[in-house]
């Protein structure tokens, strides 16, 4: 009897030790997810490129056409961009690695063009500007990822194309810069109300903040932040080197930095301005670079 009990205890001991060993093996698999360096898509010499935010791992994604406004979806899987083809500005979509590139729009009228595509924050569709030059009608529209237009709104008081466009985090408001005056306007998708002169006089690129309560824009060599609820410019940064224009800016998803393009010495090319450190860092040195956009944060 004692021998049997001893054998059982031995078996139990081995069983528990085996469990502990197996457990350690499984626990060893408990790695964090593979964190990836943040990438930036941008335009260089008319093509879409991507790189890490430190400027490394450059990769060219498109090889034809004259392309503009690449915008990365919030989930990081897709890039939408504009491209001139057949004499029109059209909207294209590709995966983040450049594969599965396809054209979403085909201009039906000889005088119409699509501009400034960017993603709805939830990735369900694409916001764009369509401008018909003969009638001078300018529209804000939303299409799905197959290119089917879901809604399109005529912008009252606007008789020109849009230069830059950004959408709020809740997908309800679109801030834009229109080329007739270079004013910044604000269109409310829910109420379909439009204020074409929200910020005057001449402004440039703009991008909605990740916090959702404001957007940043460039006016001369300054970055401003416009607070929606208070209708105030809450701060500005003057020690930057951006003098021009519609080269594009984009927030880092964490909201602590902004990527933009400098066209003034000593920095030429894409730069990152960090709001925490108040530092300006150059990451490329090519005067053709423009329209940078962080992965995970559409323009």
């Amino acid at each position: 009897m004692n021998r049997k009990n001893k054998k059982n205890r031995s078996m139990l001991y081995h069983y528990i030790m085996c469990l502990a060993a197996l457990l350690l093996v499984v626990i060893g698999c408990d790695g964090m997810r593979n964190e990836e360096p943040l990438q930036i898509c941008f335009i260089r010499n008319g093509d879409v490129w991507v790189m890490d935010e430190d400027g490394s791992n450059l990769k060219q994604l498109t090889f034809t056409g004259t392309n503009e406004w690449p915008s990365w979806s919030a989930d990081g899987k897709y890039i939408v961009y504009g491209s001139v083809t057949g004499g029109h500005n059209e909207i294209f979509l590709m995966e983040g690695d450049g594969s599965n590139n396809r054209q979403l729009t085909v201009c039906a009228l000889s005088d119409e063009n699509y501009y400034c595509p960017t993603w709805l924050p939830d990735g369900s569709g694409i916001v764009y500007n369509r401008f018909v030059s003969t009638s001078a009608f300018s529209y804000i529209g939303i299409m799905d990822t197959k290119g089917d237009i879901k809604n399109e709104y005529l912008l009252s008081g606007i008789n020109s194309r849009i230069n830059a466009l950004t959408i709020s985090n809740d997908g309800k408001m679109v801030a834009y810069n229109w080329s007739g005056t270079n004013f910044i306007g604000l269109f409310n998708i829910m109420t379909q109300s439009n204020n074409s002169a929200l910020i005057t006089p001449t402004n440039y690129s703009l991008t909605w903040s990740p916090e959702g309560d404001s957007f940043a824009y460039i006016q001369g060599p300054y970055i401003y932040k416009y607070d929606i609820s208070s209708a105030l410019n809450t701060f500005s940064y003057s020690s930057i080197y951006v003098e021009n224009s519609f080269m594009g800016i984009s927030w880092r998803p964490s909201g602590d930095a902004i990527v933009l393009v400098s066209d003034a010495l000593p920095y030429i090319g894409i730069c990152i301005f960090n709001f925490n450190t108040n530092q300006f860092k150059s990451i490329t040195n090519d005067s053709t670079d423009k329209h940078p956009c962080f992965i995970g944060k559409p323009r």
Binding site: P37, G76, P121, E211, P253, S254
Partner: peptide, 16 residues
């Protein structure tokens, strides 16, 4: 579950 860090509807893939 380990995911990229969310900032509202956006994601920072360099953080977990």
């Amino acid at each position: 579950k380990y995911t990229p860090k969310h900032y509202g509807p956006y994601m920072d893939f360099s953080q977990t």
